[in-house]
Nucleic acid binder design. Structure first.
Lengths: 362, 362
DNA sequence: TTGAAAGCGATACCAC
DNA sequence: GTGGTATCGCTTTCAA
């Protein structure tokens, strides 16, 4: 009914409400609130009192339209329940918070359409960066798709960051934060080999997924380095989940039962493998050794505790955020850092109790 | 240099750029894009072509300022790496996506100040609802604090949802989505009791945390129902993590070693307990039975697979979102549903392999 | 069916 | 030091 709606009756109080109640101009209120401008103590007190009374907070949308606004990072993941991704997200979130940035999380459920929709949604939100998490299938189409994302975002003043995914070829405005995936697998396989294992069941993960490919390559290189033949028949691809670990081991037990160790693509796969071995009456690690990859908390919760490859997920998240923050802050004129920046973090083997030398063959 | 900046040179293209390139008015572009208004096919085609050429997406901030905009839910959690919370988040996210809503995730790190800051931040963002996840310490202060949050958000046209936390007393505009925490504990403890266990080590969780209190109450009630004395000396409080499970069992092994079962506050605590038992040479479940609570994936990855209480985390997330969506959509005049709504979902015991009748006493 | 113009809430530039 | 006010990009009456 009233000409100018009272703050209490119609949603949120605005800066105008505050100005009127305090008997000052909106400009003054804005100055007090942003704090980056000299104002008299008297004015500040008056304004702040009203702000408290009205429980006023500024409208982030209006602010961001007018120029200010909190920088926001968007994290896009396939599945929020994956432990590894949660750690990356934690790293991003933590580093973002430290800088007063906001972070958004979206899940794609492995659906390319949804991924596209989300990237656009984030573009609409005007996010400072979009972080895409997790392995991918590196077809030509992937490169094309990502290049398009990168350019779209770049044109909108945003930036694409790929974490744990293959870097983009050519001159594409995207940052990649990666870990030494193949090196980790090489070290892990070497660990098995040096313990004396020769017949090892390899469960790299989904065929075609870049992380799985890298892990497989690392393992193969280790075998070569040891001069040991690498039997392709001992490789079983499948999803990164415990069910696959279980069924793959079951099958292997039937078809190639002479393996003395399992090189699992992830800790979760290793957990499934361990279950299957036990179900078949094989002891771990006395009869069969198992190693994982990722070093999520699960690894040390299993019995025996799992020897695995530590991937610095949280650190990667932090690094990713730092990369976009730097580029944004250093960017008064030309952007800081080259486009197509590719950062690689190290991995290392964490030795626990799931590996023993193979039992002497009967 | 140009009067009106070209889209390609200065950040994001605007609706004006589209209008000019298409030779139509901004109003028309807006209509084509929102689709909720009749436009000629010719106009639609012209506009859409330019939209594609320019790779235009609307500015979400501007849109939301002007009235439209995507409803957004904010999820606030203590620690993003907690598996249980991840599932709630997944439920919320999934349901949000289904309705075209956006979801934000923020982490508080158990810091009340940060929690406050985040609630305000979300208020600034004009979110449709703020979902607070996880147990809490229900002091008077908690009630006051949450009531304040609830009213602040309500006044701003938003809404507070508490998930897995105690409901608010009095006439406070907040929705609570909860599960039958005490009932689950009662059932779980009964399961142990009916298997013949009498001396059970209880690890409820952090003293004072509402979830821990509820689980302890449930256990106690079960003992009473069985007419079995409940020894307070068998209760050991501590954090919901595997380290606590480990150290608590170690201590119990020294001080009250006659227990035949462990009733852990969460699956993760159970995992730690299991480790400690094994390290001390006790077999699970032959010598000691263990049960958990939550039924996160870990429960079925342990050996033996853990008997535990299933908590419908993902479902709770879905329900929480549905509650706020309903209230918002049903709200042309009066709000739908009473304030202080309290939804409670059921829990149930999932029997796996970690419980055996106690060994005959020597 | 389409266009012009008045806001939405906050910022920042320009006067005083 | 403080107050007007144009402006950000979009939606939505109101006219035509």
């Amino acid at each position: 009914m009233s000409q100018r709606k009272a703050p209490s009756e119609a949603g949120r109080a605005t800066i105008r409400d505050v100005a009127e109640h305090a008997g000052v101009s909106v400009a003054s209120v804005s100055r007090v609130l942003s704090g980056n401008y000299p104002v008299s103590d008297e004015l500040r007190r008056r304004v702040m009192k009203v702000v408290r009374d009205l429980d006023y907070v500024t409208n982030a949308h209006a602010r961001s339209l007018a120029g200010g606004g909190t920088p926001t990072v968007a994290i896009l993941i396939n599945n929020i329940t994956g432990a590894a991704f949660a750690h990356v997200a934690k790293g991003v979130e933590g580093a973002a918070t430290l800088r007063g940035w906001l972070s958004l999380v979206g899940t794609t459920g492995d659906d390319p359409e949804r991924e596209l929709a989300l990237v656009n949604l984030m573009r609409q939100q005007g996010v400072a960066a979009v972080v895409l998490l997790g392995g991918a299938y590196d077809y030509d189409e992937y490169q094309l798709r990502m290049a398009r994302f990168a350019r779209s975002l770049d044109a909108a003043g945003s930036h694409l960051v790929l974490v744990g995914r293959p870097p983009l070829e050519g001159d594409v405005p995207a940052t990649t934060v990666d870990y030494d995936n193949e090196g980790g697998a090489y070290a892990m396989a070497s660990h098995l080999l040096s313990a004396g294992h020769r017949r090892v069941l390899v469960l790299p993960g989904p065929a075609g997924l870049t992380t799985a490919q890298g892990r497989l390559r690392g393992a193969r290189r280790a075998f070569e380095a040891y001069g040991i033949p690498f039997d392709p028949g001992m490789i079983r691809h499948g999803p990164y989940d415990d069910t696959h670990g279980y069924t793959a081991v079951e099958a292997a037990l039937r078809e190639t039962p002479d393996f003395t160790a399992v090189l699992a693509g992830t800790d979760v796969v290793a957990a499934g493998a361990m279950q299957a071995l036990r179900a078949a009456g094989r002891r771990v690690p006395e009869d069969v050794s198992i190693v994982g990859y990722d070093d999520i908390p699960l690894a040390s919760q299993l019995t025996p505790q799992l020897t695995t490859v530590h991937v610095p997920y949280e650190e990667m998240g932090r690094v990713a955020l730092r990369a976009v923050a730097d580029r944004r802050e250093g960017g008064t004129g030309r952007r800081k850092g080259a486009d197509g920046e590719h950062l690689v973090l190290g991995t290392h083997v964490v030795v626990r109790n799931s590996v023993r030398p193979p039992a002497p063959r009967g």
